[in-house]
Design a protein around this nucleic acid. Structure first.
Lengths: 166, 166
DNA sequence: AGGAGATAGTTCAAGCCTAAAATGTTTATG
DNA sequence: CATAAACATTTTAGGCTTGAACTATCTCCT
């Protein structure tokens, strides 16, 4: 947390440098988290009140809506970037509610494909329209140019993969 | 999801307009989520491996580290923007581990102040240094100017409060 | 063919998270 | 003073999330 000694020091890979950039990045991260949590919270609330559903369920349905023939469990978990076991639970509940079906995969009895039912597709179409409007409203403080620019910058953050770990 | 009819239509408050801005905002939101989840995941992993702790615990400790005399449960839940009941559970566990203490508030037997123990302060100091370095590393694709600029833009998103709900 | 190892998915334990109900305490009001 | 309303916190029920252990199946190599 100190600001001294930043001048002629070797820059260790994983050590805080406390430069202006370092501080600006920390502030950015906190704000990033805050903004994301804010929007997420509003979406969650809207989904709950309007459609009696949750964000994770919406995410699963969105992924499957895009992938017409369905996805295997592992593909789903990879697209959504959540753990395998997590997907199992969410899909279980969506199947119970008649929104998804599990379909055996030919030639591989380990795998399952998951697909939206007709009812599921219809429900999602409704939700997607509202969802888009909610986002538009929540992000109305950002115009098209800024949005494009921020998207590119965020890409640079998200792209940094798990390489240089410690 | 259609692109037609955006021309001479009254703009309803909650209806998707499907303008260029609307699409750019949706893309921004998806990227925002992706970047945040990415950084969060790395932090979680680092905290787990290096300090055998979790992000929510870190957040609680960070809030209390900043607030020297401690915070009341409700203040904590408001600062962290998580539910009251949630804070109860996390604090319970931190108290068991000797990192926090609950202190009765004079003149109000309903309230409790929560404060870091000496051990808690020491542990957090260690974690904070690493945390700052991790963030610096994860966001290295963004320079100081960009960071400052993005922070301001995100402020505009996070600031939008719960007013015009539906 | 017969394993060794990889892969797909589920189960499990533990913790996080929320909304809503419940408990105990304080404050305001008649 | 009594008691209704407000407040601080905890409890509860249900769902999300992870990492790790486990089961079943497939692939590859000899």
């Amino acid at each position: 947390m100190s600001e001294i000694g930043a001048g002629h020091r070797v820059e260790a890979e994983t050590e805080a440098r406390d430069t202006a950039a370092s501080k600006a990045r920390l502030r950015l991260w906190l704000k990033l988290l805050k903004a994301t949590k804010h929007v997420e919270g509003e979406l969650r609330e809207n989904l709950r009140v309007t459609f009696d559903t949750t964000l994770p369920r919406f995410d699963v349905m969105a992924a499957l809506y895009r992938a017409e023939p369905g996805l295997k469990m592992s593909e789903l978990s990879s697209v959504l970037r959540v753990s395998n076991g997590n997907v199992t639970g969410i899909v279980d509940r969506l199947v119970i509610d008649g929104i998804l079906v599990r379909i055996p995969v030919d030639n591989d009895r380990r795998a399952t494909t998951v697909r939206l039912t007709k009812a599921g597709r219809e429900q999602f179409a409704q939700m997607a329209a509202k969802h888009e409007a909610w986002i538009d409203n929540l992000l109305e403080g950002v115009d098209a140019n800024e949005a494009q620019q921020m998207t590119d910058q965020l890409e640079r953050i998200a792209r940094k993969n798990t390489k240089k770990g410690a």
